[in-house]
Design a protein around this nucleic acid. Structure first.
Length: 258
DNA sequence: ATGACTCCCAGTGGGAGA
C-alpha cells in the first residue's frame, strides 16, 4: 500500500500536474493541501476519471484539503473534532483499514503574531484529537504539510533560521508531542540523503540551490511501524513548469492491499 | 538587501504563504 501527501498550492493550477503524477505514482491514497477551491469547484470528476474516490473540504482563496483513494474512504471526518475552526485544514478517512489523516497545519507567519497564537491553539487541539483517534484506530497515518521543521538537519541554514517560524522550540515541542502519542516520523526510519527537503521558496533560486525545509511529514502509528517499507520525497514535480513550492512525500506499507 | 516568486481576489495593488 502506498500513501502520499502533497501541498499542491492551488489545485486549479496544479490539477494537470497532479494527474500526471498519479499516472507515474499510482498511490492507493493521497492527501492534498492548499487546494484553494470552494467545495463547488472541486474537480472530483477529473479525479474519478483517473480512478480515485475523493473527499474534500474547501474554502475560498486559502487552505482547502482533500483525500483521494482508489477504494472509497469511510468514516470521513472534516477538521479537528470539537475544535471550532473557520479554516479548512483537516480531512480524515479510513482506507483499507488504515486511518488516514491529511492535515494542513497553520503557517504561523511569525512567532510574535496572532497567527502563531492560532497555530499553537490548533496544535494543542490536534494533539488531543489525534490521541483519541489513535485509541480507536491503532493503524493510523497522520500526514500533510506540518509547517514545522522538526530538527536542525531539516533546515538549510539552522543558524540563520534559529527561532524563526517553522523552527521555534514551541513548534518543535508540538511535533515531539505527536510522536510521544505513539507515532514515528516515517522518513527518519530510513537512511536518507543529507539535505533532503520538501519545500523550497519560489524566490532566490532556492530549489536550484537546495535552500529548503523539510516541513511535509508522514507520521505512522507504532502499530503500523513494522510495516513501513520506505518513505521518500519526490523532488521531480518541483522541476515542472509552474511547480508547487512543495514536493510530495510517499510512504510504502507492507501487507495492506486492496 | 527590508528584495527576490506565486497564488488569490482584486482591478491596474496587496495579503499570504514559508
Amino acid at each position: 500500500m502506498k500513501l502520499a501527501t502533497w501541498n499542491v498550492n492551488s489545485l486549479a493550477v496544479r490539477l494537470p500536474q497532479l494527474l500526471d503524477w498519479l499516472q507515474a505514482q499510482p498511490v492507493d491514497a493521497i492527501v492534498l493541501q492548499e487546494t484553494k477551491l470552494t467545495d463547488d469547484k472541486f474537480p472530483h470528476a477529473a479525479l474519478a476519471d483517473a480512478g480515485y474516490h475523493t473527499q474534500w473540504l474547501g474554502q475560498k482563496t486559502y487552505n482547502g484539503v482533500a483525500l483521494l483513494s482508489r477504494t472509497p474512504a469511510t468514516d470521513i471526518t472534516k477538521n479537528i473534532v470539537d475544535f471550532a475552526d473557520e479554516q479548512a485544514r483537516v480531512i480524515a478517512g479510513t482506507v483499507q483499514g488504515v486511518r488516514v489523516i491529511g492535515a494542513y497545519f497553520p503557517n504561523g507567519q511569525a512567532p510574535d503574531s496572532d497567527k502563531f497564537v492560532y497555530k499553537m491553539r490548533w496544535l494543542q487541539a490536534l494533539q488531543g484529537w489525534i490521541k483519541a483517534e489513535l485509541a480507536s484506530h491503532p493503524q493510523l497515518v497522520l500526514m500533510g504539510d506540518f509547517n514545522i521543521a522538526p530538527e536542525d538537519r531539516d533546515v538549510y541554514d539552522p543558524v540563520a533560521l534559529a527561532g524563526t517560524i517553522h523552527c521555534t522550540p514551541e513548534e518543535r515541542a508540538h511535533f515531539q508531542a505527536l510522536l510521544e502519542l505513539g507515532t514515528v516520523d516515517a522518513f527518519r526510519l530510513f537512511n536518507q540523503p543529507p539535505k533532503t527537503y520538501s519545500w523550497w521558496d519560489y524566490r532566490m533560486l532556492a530549489f536550484r540551490r537546495n535552500l529548503g525545509l523539510r516541513i511535509d511529514h508522514v507520521l505512522v502509528s507504532t502499530a503500523l511501524k513494522p510495516q513501513v517499507l520506505a518513505c521518500t520525497i519526490d523532488r521531480l514535480p518541483r522541476k515542472n513548469e509552474r511547480p508547487s513550492d512543495h514536493a510530495p512525500v510517499i510512504v510504502e506499507l507492507a501487507g495492506l492491499t486492496a
